[in-house]
Each structure stands twice: as C-alpha cells, then as structure tokens.
C-alpha cells in the first residue's frame, strides 16, 4: 500500500464520496445539529471519534471473529453493539468534561448510535479488503468529510439566521435546498481523480 494510494483513499472518502453529500448517510444529525458552528464542530468531533474507533474495532471483529468462525451474518448486530458501546462511553466522557457540549448535543448524541454513517463505515470496511491502516485512513477520511459538510452547513445556517427568508422557504425547506446545492457542488470533486 503506497503512500499516494492512502492519500487518494483519504481524499476519496472525505470529498468525492462524502458521506453526507454523495452517499446521503447521516442526514439526521446533519440537519439536526447544524444550527450553530460550535455544536456542529463538537458533533463532528464526536462522530470522528466514534467513526474511527468503531471502524477499527469492526475491522478487527470482522477479521478475527466473524470471518474465522463463519459468522458474517452477525455483522449488523455486532457492529451496532460496538457503536452503541462507544456512544455510551463517549456520552459519559462528554458529560463529565464538557456539560455545555453535552447539553447542546441533546438527543443527537445518543442518536449517533443509530447514525447510519457510522454503521455505513463499519459495513463498507467489512465488505472491503482493507488492512488496518487503510481502515483507519478510510474511517478518519469519512469522518472528516462528514465534519466538513456539517460545519459548512452550520456556517451557512448561522448566516441565514439574520437573512430575510421568504415565509414559504423558512426553516427546513431552505435547509434542504442548501443541502441539495452543497451536494451538487461536491459532485464537482469527482473530477479530482481522473477516471482510470
């Protein structure tokens, strides 16, 4: 595995196959926690943490338990178990060290448990032939891409807060339109890597 292919993997997972804007995974939290830049960043950090560790742990479980014992049908159950545990763990840590962030997350922190982006990473890793290093790069790249998307969205929505939005477009309507336009622009990244 050469360095350049790792870079490509990172860029590909972060920008080209961005989890929110081209795979459309993890939309719930994307729309729910993107009202303030600060909370969006926090959510991004939390997702990065969970995604990276769950990606690695899932990879290990897949490789050393599920495959040797011919149990790939347990994938979903085991991965959800891993994610749920990590989220619980993270919740306790955040509550201890950053109560304001904890309050800002509200329901969305437990919701990471059912965030399909994280399960998505685990499943994509399991379905691939990545080694540990590639798994980590892929997980981190996906998480960075997810964070990037939600932070951009939060920046836009903070601006929107003091814009004169026509009544018919206020609230979720405009948020979804913005997400759509962002998605279109992210399609432009597919030109980054020449088709081979």
């Amino acid at each position: 595995m050469s360095f350049s292919s790792l870079v490509l993997l990172f860029v590909g997972s972060a920008l080209i196959n961005n989890f929110i804007l081209s795979r459309f995974l993890g939309i719930c939290a994307f729309l729910g926690v993107s009202k303030r830049l600060e909370t969006a960043l926090g959510m991004g950090a939390a997702v990065t943490f969970v995604m990276t560790i769950s990606g690695a742990v899932s990879w290990a479980i897949q490789r050393y338990i599920l495959v040797p014992f011919h149990l790939p049908f347990l994938q979903y159950v085991v991965f959800i178990l891993v994610i749920a545990t990590l989220v619980q763990f993270l919740e306790m840590v955040i509550r201890r060290y950053s109560p304001s962030l904890y309050e800002a997350f509200g329901i969305y922190l437990p919701l990471i448990t059912t965030n399909c982006a994280i399960l998505g990473v685990a499943l994509l890793v399991a379905g691939s032939d990545y080694g540990l290093l590639e798994t980590l790069v892929f997980s981190v790249g996906s998480a960075v891409g997810w964070t990037l998307a939600i932070v951009l969205m939060a920046g836009l929505r903070e601006e929107l807060e003091f814009a004169d939005v026509p009544l018919s477009l206020q609230g979720p309507a405009l948020s979804l339109l913005i997400a759509a336009i962002m998605s279109l622009t992210f399609m432009g990244f597919s030109g980054l890597v020449p088709a081979s």
Binding site: I61, I65, L66, F69, H70, L71, L74, V77, V78, L81, V82, T85, Q88, F89
Partner: peptide
C-alpha cells in the same frame, strides 16, 4: 455455539468497559 459465545464474550467485554 460460536455465535453465542463470541457475542456473549464481546458483550461482557463491552459491559466491563462501560
């Protein structure tokens, strides 16, 4: 057996962590 055992062990490990 393998499924129950592996799941059980994983669950116990995670429970201890939590």
């Amino acid at each position: 057996l393998a499924a129950s055992l592996s799941m059980g062990l994983l669950a116990v490990a995670f429970a201890v962590l939590l």
